[in-house]
Design a protein around this nucleic acid. Structure first.
Lengths: 140, 140
DNA sequence: AACCATGTGCAACGGCGTTGCAAAATATAT
DNA sequence: ATATATTTTGCAACGCCGTTGCACATGGTT
C-alpha cells in the first residue's frame, strides 16, 4: 500500500498489517472525522468489529488519532497533526459538527479561547464542540 | 413530599408521581450533576431502569433538566436554571468535571467565550466541558 | 367514588463494546 | 530462506445500555 501509511505505522512501533494500513488510509484520504461505524462498513471493505475497535484504540494510544465527543454520545476519530505523532497529544483545537451533513471537522486554525474557572480550580483540558451549519450546507 | 418539587411538576403539566417526585428531589438536594446510574441505584431507593430513562427524558423535554456530555461518553443530567422552566432551553454556561472526585458542575457564573469559525459557518450551540481538578480535591 | 388518562414495571430485544482463546499473520533470528 | 517468537486477527460469547410493547397500577378529573 501507501508508503506514508507504512511509515506512520513503523514510526509508532506498530506492525504493519492489512487492517491497520487500510484503516489508517481511510483517515488519510478523508478530511472529515470518522465514527466507528463509518469504518466498519466502509465502501466495499468489511472489517471485523473487534479489529476496528482495537485498531482505533491503538491509534489513539499512539497519538495517531484523537477522539471527538459528540452531542449524541457517539465518538468520532480524526487524525492528529504532526506534533502528536511523538506520543504526547496536543489537543489545542476545537471541533465543528454540521447539523445538516454531519460533517465533523477539526478547526485547527483557531486556538481554544481561555475559559474562566472558580477560584482554586485547575483546568487540564478543555473540550469544545461547536454545533452548527457549514458553509456548503448553508448555500444549498 | 416537598412542595417545591410538586410545584415544578405541576408547572410543567406533569402528573405528580412517586418516581418523579423522588428523582426530581435528588436533583434539588444535590448540587452536582447525576448520571443515569447514580439515580438508578440511589441510596436506599431502587428505581426501575425504564422509569428512570423515561423520567429523565421527560424532564429534559420539559426543560427541567439539561444534559452534560462527558469525555467518557456517558451523559450526566443537571437542573436547569429558572429561565429554562418555560420550555425554551438556554444553554449559556459551560461545565466542569473534576478528574479526582468526578464531581460535575455547571459553571453558571461564566459566560461561554465566543468562538471563531471559518467563513460562512454558522454556530448554533457551543458545548464546552472543562476537565480538571476542583478546589476541594486540590487541597487534599 | 368511578371513570379516564397517564405512568409504571416487566419481559424481551437489538446494538455496542469488551474479553478469552485459537488460528493466522507479521517480525525477528539464524 | 526458514524457523521461531511475537503480535494481531477473527470468532464466540458475554454483559451492559437504552428502547419498545403491553398489561397493570397510579394519579387526575368529574
Amino acid at each position: 500500500m501507501n508508503t506514508k501509511v507504512h511509515d506512520i505505522l513503523r514510526r509508532n512501533q506498530l506492525s504493519v498489517t492489512e487492517s491497520r494500513e487500510k484503516i489508517l488510509n481511510l483517515f488519510l484520504t478523508n478530511t472529515r472525522a470518522l465514527a466507528h461505524a463509518d469504518i466498519e462498513h466502509k465502501a466495499g471493505e468489511r472489517f471485523d468489529r473487534v479489529t476496528v475497535y482495537r485498531t482505533l484504540q491503538t491509534f489513539v494510544e499512539k497519538g495517531i488519532l484523537h477522539t471527538i465527543p459528540t452531542a449524541d454520545n457517539s465518538v468520532k476519530y480524526a487524525l492528529c497533526k504532526n506534533d502528536c505523532f511523538e506520543g504526547h497529544h496536543h489537543d489545542n483545537h476545537y471541533h465543528f459538527i454540521c447539523a445538516v451533513c454531519g460533517k465533523t471537522e477539526c478547526l485547527e486554525d483557531f486556538v481554544i479561547p481561555s475559559v474562566r474557572l472558580p477560584k482554586e480550580y485547575l483546568a487540564n483540558n478543555v473540550e469544545i464542540v461547536v454545533n452548527g451549519i457549514c458553509s456548503a450546507c448553508r448555500k444549498k
